[in-house]
Design a protein around this nucleic acid. Structure first.
Lengths: 215, 215
DNA sequence: CCTCTTGGGGAGTGTCACTATCCAAGCATG
DNA sequence: CATGCTTGGATAGTGACACTCCCCAAGAGG
C-alpha cells in the first residue's frame, strides 16, 4: 500500500505519517520508484502502536523513538529488549535530591522492596526509572503532609505483584514469536495504565458512595 | 509572609507564583498597602497542592483550576465536592464514537461494571469521565490486536476495588474537617497514581525476572 | 503531452507552562 | 527629603512539542 492508503487504514493524516517517518518512529517504505514507496501490514501495525503510545500512553515522540529502537534492537536478547523498552518509557521528573523528604522516601521505598523481596539482583545494578518514580511520589506525598508508611504501601505493592503475574500471562498469551512478545509487553504495560487508573477512580467513586452516599 | 517568602518556602519562583495568581490557581493575598500583599500558611499549602497536581499528577493548569474551584465551592456538600473535583481531573481523549471497536469496548466495560455491582445508581445519571477513559483504553487495546475480555479485566477491577477501601481509609485518617478530607481525597487520588504505576512496573520487572531471567 | 498524485522537506502553527522585562508605588537608609 | 531597593501587577516573549501547511520535483495515468 502507498502512503495515502496507510493513512486511510490507520486514521492518521499523511502529514503526520510523514512526520513520524522523518522522526524515525516508522521505518521508511520500500522504494518502488524514485517518488513512490510501498508500505506493508507491518508498517500499519507499527503505526498503530506509535499512536497508542503517544495518544493513550501520553508518551513523547522522543521517548517513543527510544522504546521502538529497543524493540528493534537485534543485539539484545528477549529479556534485555523488554527491559530496555520499558526503561525508556516516561517516568516524570526525578525528585530533588537536596530535599530531606527525598532521602526519607528513598529509604522507605527500599525498605518496602526489601520486604517484598523485589531485589534487583546482582544483574541489574542500576536502579530502574520506576524506582525513582516511586521515590518522587512518596516524597511529594510527605511534603504535602500525607506521609505514607511502608505499611500503607504494602497492600498496593502486594496487589500489583499479583496483577503482574496476570500481566505476564497476557504477554505470553498474545506473543507468539519473541518479537511479538516484546511488543505485546510494551503495549500492555502502557495501555493497561489508563485501564488501571480508570478502574481505580471508578472503584473509589463506588466506595465513596457506599460510605458517604445519601441514598 | 510576602511573595518572596512564599516563593522561598515553597521552592516555586516568584514569577511562577504570580502566574498562578493570575490564572486563579491561588487566591490573592491580603492587601497590606497599595503595592504589597500578605500570604499565610493556607496559601503555602494550596501552592504545594497546585505544584503536586501539575508536576507529579501531570494535570494541566486549566484542569487544576477546575479541581480547586470544586474544592472551594461552598454550595456543594462533602460528597458532591469530592465528585466534582475528581471529575475535573484529566482523563485523556475520548474514543472515536464512530469506531465499532468503541461500541464493543463500551459493552464490555458496562458488563464488567454490572458484574461488579458498580452501578452509578439513580443519583449519578451521567457517566463519569473515568468510564470514558476505560472505554477508550479497551477500544485501543482491541484495535491493536490485544482484545481484553471481561474475564481479563475482572482481577484488575477486584484488586482496585480492595485498594479503594484502603484509599478511603487514608482519606478519613488524614482529613479532620470536611474541607481537609476533600483536599486529601484529591491529593491522594492524584498522587497515588504514580505510586501505583511505579509499583506495577517494578512488579512486572520482578515477575519477568522470575520467568525469563537468567540467573 | 498534460494533468494529477506522490513523497520529501523546510518552515509555520497552536498550545502550554512558564519567564523576562517593565513600571509605578512604597519602604528603608543617609 | 533624596536615593536606591524591593514589591506586586501586567504585558509580552520563550522554548518545547506535536503536528501541519506548502512547495517542489519526479513520476504515473489518460
Amino acid at each position: 500500500m502507498r502512503l495515502a492508503e496507510l493513512s486511510e487504514r490507520s486514521g492518521v493524516s499523511t502529514a503526520t505519517i510523514k512526520y513520524y517517518l522523518r522522526e524515525g518512529l516508522l521505518p521508511p517504505g520500500r522504494r518502488i520508484t524514485a517518488t513512490q514507496a510501498e508500505y506493508d501490514e507491518e508498517h500499519l501495525r507499527r503505526l498503530r502502536l506509535v499512536r497508542a503510545l503517544i495518544q493513550v500512553g501520553g508518551v513523547s515522540v522522543a521517548s517513543a523513538r527510544e522504546v521502538l529502537a529497543a524493540l528493534d534492537d537485534d543485539s539484545l536478547d528477549h529479556n534485555e529488549r523488554l527491559g530496555t523498552a520499558v526503561w525508556a518509557l516516561p517516568h516524570g521528573r526525578p525528585a530533588d535530591p537536596d530535599d530531606p523528604a527525598t532521602e526519607t522516601a528513598r529509604q522507605r521505598a527500599d525498605r518496602l522492596l526489601e520486604l517484598l523481596g523485589w531485589g534487583y539482583g546482582p544483574l541489574t545494578d542500576v536502579t530502574p526509572p520506576a524506582h525513582a518514580m516511586l521515590v518522587t511520589a512518596i516524597a511529594t506525598l510527605e511534603r504535602l503532609g500525607y506521609p505514607c508508611t511502608v505499611e500503607d504501601l504494602t497492600p498496593y505493592a502486594r496487589a500489583l505483584g499479583q496483577l503482574a503475574v496476570h500481566d505476564l500471562d497476557l504477554v505470553e498469551r498474545y506473543g507468539g514469536t519473541a518479537d511479538e512478545q516484546v511488543e505485546a509487553a510494551v503495549a500492555l504495560t502502557v495501555l493497561y495504565e489508563p485501564v488501571l487508573l480508570a478502574l481505580r477512580r471508578l472503584a473509589e467513586a463506588e466506595e465513596s458512595r457506599r460510605r458517604f452516599g445519601r441514598q
